[in-house]
Amino acid sequence: MAVLEMKQVRKIFGSGHTEVEALKPTDFSSQQGELIAVIGPSGSGKSTFLTIAGGLQTPTSGQVFMNGTDITKLKEKQRSAIRLKEIGFVLQSSNLVPFLNVKQQMRLLDKVKKHNLPSEKLQELYQTLGIHKLLNSFPSDLSGGEKQRVAIAKALYTDPSIILADEPTASLDSDRAFEVMEMLQEITTKSNKTTIVVTHDTRLIDYCDKVYQITDGRLALQTEQAQS
C-alpha cells in the first residue's frame, strides 16, 4: 500500500478575477523507503503541494490518503493528531522552540505523544546528526546548520512514516546541505520512511529516488533513478 497517495488533488485560491489554481488536478503516490524531490520555480505550487500532503490545508477537491486514511474528510483536530503520529516536518526556517534546549525539544514531544523512539535510538540519531554534544544548548546558541539538524532530529523522533521537508537546506552552505541530504537519504532507506523534499536547488536531486517537476501547479515525474 502507498504511504501517501493523492487522487485528483486540486487547490484553488481566491475566486473570480483573483482565482489562482495553485495545484492542477494531481495524482501522486509514494512508497516506503522513497526519497522524493519536488522542484520548481518560485510560485509554482511546491509549498501548496507539500502542505496538502502534510494535512496542513485541505484541497479544493480530490482526496489525500495517508496509510489508507482519507485525511481530507477529517476535522482539524483529527488531522492534528495524524500529523503528530505520521508526519515529521522539516521546515525552511527553524521550527525549534526558542526557550527549550535540544533535549527539551524532544521531551516536549514526549509530553504530547507516547511511543517515540526508544532512548538508544535517540542517542544514535543524535550521533548520526552530529548534535550529541549540543544537547544542552538553546536554539539561539546554534548555527543555522545545527538548528536544521536538530529540526531533523525532532522530525524523526516521533518515528513518523512520512517526512516532509520544505527547502530544508535553504539556510545552509553547500557542504552542509549535502550532509543533510545524505542524512535524509540514509534515514529514509534505513528506517523505511517516505521522504519528500521540496527544493529549487537542483544539485540536491542526485540524492533522490524520484524527482518531480512542478510548473504552474502541474506536477510531472521528471526522473526516476534505479533504487540503490
Partner: peptide, 15 residues
C-alpha cells in the same frame, strides 16, 4: 509563529 510551528507538528491547541 512558535505556536504555529508546534501546531503544524501536531501539538494540539488544547495542550
Amino acid at each position: 509563529s512558535i505556536f504555529g510551528v508546534m501546531k503544524a507538528q501536531g501539538i494540539s491547541s488544547k495542550y
